[in-house]
């Protein structure tokens, strides 16, 4: 293998990893507060991709306008899912909420299939992201280069919100003890909505960058990234946003390295995440940066 190919794959790994990271943040925040695996998160990411297709292809809006519209629409969808599918079940058994999460996920997938058909749609070309930059013999797309940068900036923004703002403090309190936070007068519904706003917004950004790398939009495109990113969040330590980003990077690198060094196993690429999950649960169930969670007795 030449040095060029290695560098190219390394950049690929980092950029895939940062896409995983963007989606993983949404999972980790929701799990941190509601102890809920938001199965619909991957499908919200999928819907964001469709929004981008409609905005740019069907309405012919320029990419910068579309981006704003898509982020807003995705956030609205995320909050809508929370309000209709999760909020009414706040006091229901955990099993019901998990089923509801699966139900929303499946409903979104089926709606997409019904409304947009199962035939893949082409993701619109955003020239500024897809153009290639060359360093000697190595060439990258702009998207590959900017994705990690955008991810790190957004991670910083999320950390700023959770650490420095009032709502962020309420979020951290709720993630430590939901019931007590509620008793202390924290508006728990607002905290949860904010969490979904942040998570869905990041998923929308992820979808736009994802589409520039893999320009094919399908109803079930969110399933695998969704499962993987939850595992990335577990790997990093569930509830911890830095951990989610770290987990995303590690997972992305692991996948690309498998494809690079063991090309005969390319078919098993999607299996790596689950092997990582099993290993994490055996070796360090709290994840790399997670703290021990104890149940109240």
């Amino acid at each position: 293998m030449t040095f060029e190919i290695f560098m190219q794959q390394l950049a690929n790994g980092i950029s895939i990893g940062s896409l995983y990271a963007l989606i993983a943040i949404g999972y980790t925040m929701v799990y941190g507060i509601l102890r809920l695996i938001n199965f619909a998160h991957g499908d919200i990411f999928m819907m964001a991709s469709y929004f981008m297709v409609f905005s740019m292809v069907n309405f012919g809006l320029p990419w910068y306008v579309s981006m704003v519209i898509v982020i807003i629409a995705t956030i609205l969808l995320g909050v809508l899912v929370e309000k209709t599918a999760y909020k009414p079940l706040r006091n229901a058994p955990r099993m019901s909420i998990m089923i509801s999460a699966i139900g929303v996920s499946f409903l979104l997938e089926n709606l997409a299939t019904y409304l947009f058909t199962g035939v893949p749609k082409g993701f619109p070309d955003i020239a500024i992201l897809t153009q290639a930059i060359s360093f000697g013999n190595i060439s990258f797309s702009v998207a590959t280069l900017v994705t990690p940068i955008i991810t790190l900036i957004l991670l910083y923004v999320v950390q700023f919100i959770t650490n420095k703002t009032k709502i962020g403090m309420a979020m951290r309190a709720s993630s430590i003890d939901f019931e007590t936070a509620r008793l202390m007068g924290i508006n728990i519904n607002r905290v949860i909505s904010t969490t979904f706003v942040i998570g869905s917004g990041l998923a929308a950004v992820g979808a736009i960058l994802w589409g520039s790398k893999y320009p094919s939009v399908m109803p079930l495109m969110g399933v695998m990234p969704g499962l993987k990113c939850f595992i990335a969040a577990v790997l990093g330590g569930i509830g911890n946003t830095t951990g989610a980003v770290l987990g995303g990077f590690i997972l992305g690198m692991a996948e690309i390295m498998l494809v690079t060094f063991l090309p005969s196993l390319t078919g098993y690429r999607d299996a790596i995440a689950f092997i990582i999950l099993i290993v994490v649960l055996l070796v360090k169930p709290t994840g790399l940066l997670g703290e021990k969670v104890t149940d109240k007795v």
């Binding site: 102890r35 695996i37 199965f39 955990r94 998990m98 699966i102 695998m224 499962l227 939850f230 595992i231 577990v234 078919g267 098993y268 999607d270 299996a271 995440a273 689950f274 999950l277 099993i278 649960l281 055996l282 169930p285």
Partner: peptide
């Protein structure tokens, strides 16, 4: 699957089993 997953955090079982369904297809 159960040995690693059901030892501590059984709420990850949903993810592990969905993943298993996909891996078996692969």
């Amino acid at each position: 699957i159960g040995i690693p997953v059901l030892r501590l955090r059984s709420d990850y079982l949903a993810i592990a089993t969905l993943g298993f369904s996909e891996i078996i297809r692969i």
